[in-house]
Write a protein that binds this DNA or RNA. Sequence first.
RNA 1: AACGGGUUGGAGUAGUCAGGUUAUCUCGUCGGGCUCAUAACCCGGAGAUCGGUGGUUCAAAUCCACCACCCGUUACCA
Length: 734
Amino acid sequence: MPEPSYVTIFMAWPYVNAPLHLGHVAGNCLPADIQYRYERARGRKVLMCSGSDEHGTPITLTAEQLGVTPQEVVDEYHEMALKSLTDLGCSWHINVDSRGVEYGGALYNRTSDHRHKELVREVFSNLLASNMLTKQTMEQYCSISGDSVRFLPDRYVEGTCPVCGAAEARGDQCDECGSTYEAHELLNPVSKLNPDAEIEVRETDHLFYRLDLFQESLEEHAATRNVVWKPNVRSMTKNWLDMGLRPRAVTRDIDWGIELPLDGDEWSSKRVYVWFEAVQGYYTCARIWSERFANSNGHPDGDSAWENWWKVSDDGTIPKHIYFMGKDNIPFHTVIWPAIIMGMNSTASGNPVSSIPAPGDLALEYNVSSNEYLMLQGGQFSKSRKHAVWLPSFLEKYDADSLRYYLSINMPETHDTDFRWNEFVDRVNNELIGTYGNFVHRVMTLTHRLPESGSNPLVDYDDPEFHADIIDESMKILESAISSMERQRFKEALRSIMGIAQIGNVLLQNAAPWKYINSDDSEERRESLSSLAMAWRLCRTLSVLTRPFMPFQSDRLWGMLGEDSDIDSVLWDESLATDNALNWCPDSPQPLFSRLDLDEIIADEMSLVEDGNINDPDHSPGDGADYIEFEDFLKVQMKTGKITSVDDHPNADKLLVIKIEDGPGTTRTVCAGLKGIYDESDLLGLNVVYVANLEPRKLRGVLSEGMILAADDGDGIVRLLTPDGEITPGSTVR
RNA sequence: AACGGGUUGGAGUAGUCAGGUUAUCUCGUCGGGCUCAUAACCCGGAGAUCGGUGGUUCAAAUCCACCACCCGUUACCA
């Protein structure tokens, strides 16, 4: 079978009721973009599809709380998501490939798109017509307050467990004893949304997708994919298939969502269930891309252009579909979505359900690449506990490429990994800047010290054949990186590529061109400078190879190399070619990255560190798990002091610089994260308690000699601890 | 609780499905070199009884059983 040149990259649709956080980035946003850019760099025709998933129940709750419509909520977060993805260097805003529309492009769409809704209704009707949807009656809680009747999802109902009598059992299952039961069995049901409302159980009809019809085909399909799936995908899928598939509801009682293509009052209050609809976005997005961009940009197939990326061609070539998502989404992509695709194929062709798409059928996935979770300082990202690093605010302060590097090299490919600020700083400073950025910078500055007259001074010394060993070694690395990328092994690939910078550093070390910059012509000088020329070529290689991972610096380097061609048209396979001329940019070279300062970052992220580590109720002592020794307690010296001056920290948003009289005639300076909580006038003259023997630390440039004690309830209320009356500054607290 | 995943030198990791020479790579650390470069670069060393116990095998990080700890999921949650 010929190698498919059509590749489609699918990123799981972010659920937009909050900004994106770094967990989303590491889990699917970044891998999808890296793979997309990689596939382009291999010369393939790539379409990338995703968008905002906008029809979940929590969005309606957010809207109610804010007093706005759900549409307003998703409008805001959709724009925010698209902007932060663009700021991160993801390719979503480039709808048409720079090589030409026949090479594809990208579309970050949204499920409230009218065309998405139309296409979903079309699929819905087709599946209904071929008896793949079946009507079942189910019992469902609803809350009644006044005239309004509202169906409630089980998770929004709680009551007394009919089995063990525990309170706060959920609508369908008791967390205490683990029993599951039918909706009507729960005792004293109460709505969590509106505790005063009367609750009763009513019958309601819904349509169900006959997943059971696909059991066998899905098992066959899984068997063919087991060789490419990672172990977590294999086992999660097997688990689902082994449990046996049952029909699954595709409609629900709610008014936020896609209306059903059905007549009759019975259906008018129901909507397409979001799992069934959002996942179809992969398909609708490709079609919508064609309609909006392919035709108008002259794609020969016009509105049907999407078929190149979705349908099995007449010669049996299957477009390669790669999906990226977090581990929570695996069964949706290995079981449910393939079942829907098989259903659509069978419906369209009239053929029986099959795991092997025929020419003209929609393709099933090639690989489902699922990452585990990125944890934050050891804990899970959590919206409700505000334990998260939000992408928009991160990108306001830090370089997108640095983040992309750290998350790529630390990607949770096979198990959970941690985002830690100190590790972020270490890896960026030592690996990214020390090895790679520094290599590029030394090549650039060395070359710029040579006498030049408008062209690259290394041209006279350029002799790549003399460095065949370097090229060989680099070629091996390139091949290994390609092999890694073909299997979605990003860490491995990036580490390989960084190896080329290391080769370059060794090359320079051995050639020592700095000795010959200003010396007279000699055999040694010519040899040394030919190594520098080779190093220059390696910089060009690196600019191409690092591009999928760190696009912004790649552009900057490309510019410093004096290259004015479109870097996206340079293939990885040609990145080590030596037949191109050395170009030149006369501007003096700038470092690719700036070093990070951990102290500054900690000062900036202070609230976050506190939320995560100190005030986390799940980790506070008191449950007996985390006792400290009395001797340890004695190590902490706490004293009283009187605040004598308060100034805004010149270089921090949350810090105040506070001077404390800490003894007779002596003062010390302490930085405290109290800005916005206390005013200067509140604090002056106040007696406070502080930790006196904390190691002094610079916070954003100001030395802080201690820490003022304050109570924080985690909900934004912060109160300083003060002695109950006047007392001499410097008094011991114990 | 059930189910799924994890536990590898100081930290982070690869290898585990298809058992087999001195267990991978990055960081850190120690010693040396270089001094062009963003205190960066290069070379070398030390450091792991692969969570525990038992089993299968000529051979186990890898397969099996049990135990401990960590994480996640349990489907109207996206």
